[in-house]
Amino acid sequence: MSEKKPSVWEGFKAFLMRGNVVDLAVAVVIGAAFTNIVNSVVKGIINPLVGTIGTKNLDTYNSCIKGPCTGVGDNATGVRILWGSVLGATLTFVITATVVYFLMVLPMSKYLARMEARRKAKEGTQEVMEVTELEVLKEIRDALIAQRGSGHDGR
């Protein structure tokens, strides 16, 4: 009388078939593709705009905090703070967050608010109809009682 435990494979299949896992996988794939677009915008538009002030590559902006800072990349000496890289990553994040908010989150929030308002309006209409029907039935009842009462008094 022992119950058969589901196999690991069956559990894994059930996990994969849940809707939220598939939605998450789709979101990750779209997010990766979207990241490429944002990176292209930063490298192709933002960096050249910043380049009008200095260099086109934000990664070259740095500050030397110790020793003589010479060379580039692996041949560099001294201790540098690569604030240009941080600035580029911050711009990428801000652009991504802005686009996601204005193109995805805000429209979805407005849509959901509209749907909720419609649902509430529909419920309110049904309540008004129910109340009106109840009032009509009460009036009919009262009229029948009044008729019955006046009919009994005349006999």
Rank of each mutant, 00 (worst) to 15 (best):
L112P: 00
G54W: 10
V29N: 00
A27F: 07
V100K: 06
V86G: 05
V105Y: 06
R80F: 11
F93T: 13
L87T: 10
K122S: 09
T98Q: 02
I30W: 15
P107Y: 12
G84M: 12
V38L: 09
T98C: 07
N39L: 13
A121N: 09
I30Y: 14
V41T: 11
I95N: 01
R118A: 11
G31D: 08
W83N: 00
T125F: 15
V29F: 10
S109W: 13
I45Q: 05
G44R: 05
E130Y: 02
A33E: 13
I65H: 12
N47I: 01
G31V: 04
K43F: 06
F34D: 05
S63Q: 03
I46W: 07
L103P: 01
I53T: 06
T92P: 00
P48D: 06
E127Y: 05
V41S: 03
E116G: 04
D59R: 08
G124I: 08
I45A: 10
K43Y: 10
T96R: 03
S40H: 09
T55S: 12
I53Q: 08
C64T: 08
F93W: 14
P48Q: 05
C64D: 14
R114W: 07
V79A: 01
A117F: 02
G31F: 07
G51Y: 14
G78W: 04
V26R: 03
R119H: 11
A76E: 11
G88A: 14
K120L: 04
R118L: 09
K120Y: 01
V79C: 01
L91G: 10
G78C: 05
P48M: 12
A27G: 00
F93S: 09
V131G: 00
S40A: 12
I37E: 15
L82Q: 02
G54F: 15
V28M: 13
A121E: 10
T90Q: 02
V26I: 09
L87Y: 11
T52E: 14
T92S: 05
G88P: 03
Y61D: 05
W83I: 00
N39V: 06
N62F: 12
C69M: 00
E123F: 02
